[in-house]
């Protein structure tokens, strides 16, 4: 895993998610794809198992950092970490590299992380504002449609595409 590239990608995605994505909307201005969710599924599918665990928790931390809920950190770290790790384990059994399967994985993981995040947020004292339709349906659906197409440029940026893998495999060892 190229960790510097990973860090830059996460920072850019977090900034885009926090402020820029409001300009890109399909159904309504408040329903936007979740870039961090797309990255979570991408790294869970494409990384080595230990790297996938670290990446999942780091992406969850970024999602909590950019969260609008005042001082609420932890729900996304736990939910992203848990489902990212589970997806990475599942990837060892079933290959999820085909684009439609990736879309399905994004939708399911998006739904599950939203539900777990909400449940964890309710553990904390004080009420929480949640738009259920947006969190549980629209955002995972939109991310599932866009995610598979973004996985190709992300794979190229992270040098995780097939061409780079093949080149690395055939590089002579010293």
């Amino acid at each position: 895993m190229r960790w510097f590239r990973f860090a830059v990608l996460i920072v850019v995605a977090t900034i885009l998610q926090t402020s820029f994505l409001g300009a890109v909307w399909v159904v309504s201005p408040n329903i936007t794809p979740n870039l961090l969710l797309i990255l979570l599924v991408f790294f869970a599918i494409h990384s080595e198992s230990n790297d996938a665990v670290i990446a999942s928790f780091v992406i969850g931390f970024a999602a909590d950092l950019a969260s609008p809920a005042a001082g609420l950190m932890g729900p996304r770290i736990i939910s992203f970490g848990l489902f990212g790790t589970l997806l990475s384990t599942l990837q060892d059994v079933i290959s999820l590299r085909r684009l439609p399967l990736q879309g399905l994985a994004i939708f399911v993981v998006g739904l599950l992380t939203s539900i777990l995040s909400c449940l964890l947020a309710y553990i904390r004292p004080g009420p929480v504002a949640i738009s259920a339709a947006r969190e549980f349906f629209w955002q995972p659906v939109l991310s599932a449609f866009i995610g598979p197409f973004l996985s190709l440029p992300i794979a190229w940026l992270m040098r995780m595409d097939e061409k780079s893998r093949r080149r690395r495999r055939h590089r002579p060892r010293r």
């Binding site: 736990i78 848990l82 964890l120």
Partner: peptide, 30 residues
């Protein structure tokens, strides 16, 4: 992988139960 996952979950749990005044400062720093 299991130990790594356990450490990270522990970290997430610590963040979850840290007072909002502290975690809020992290968000403001971002």
């Amino acid at each position: 992988k299991r130990m790594l996952f356990a450490y990270c979950m522990l970290g997430g749990g610590i963040f979850l139960f840290t007072p909002p005044s502290v975690t809020g400062k992290l968000q403001l720093a971002y």
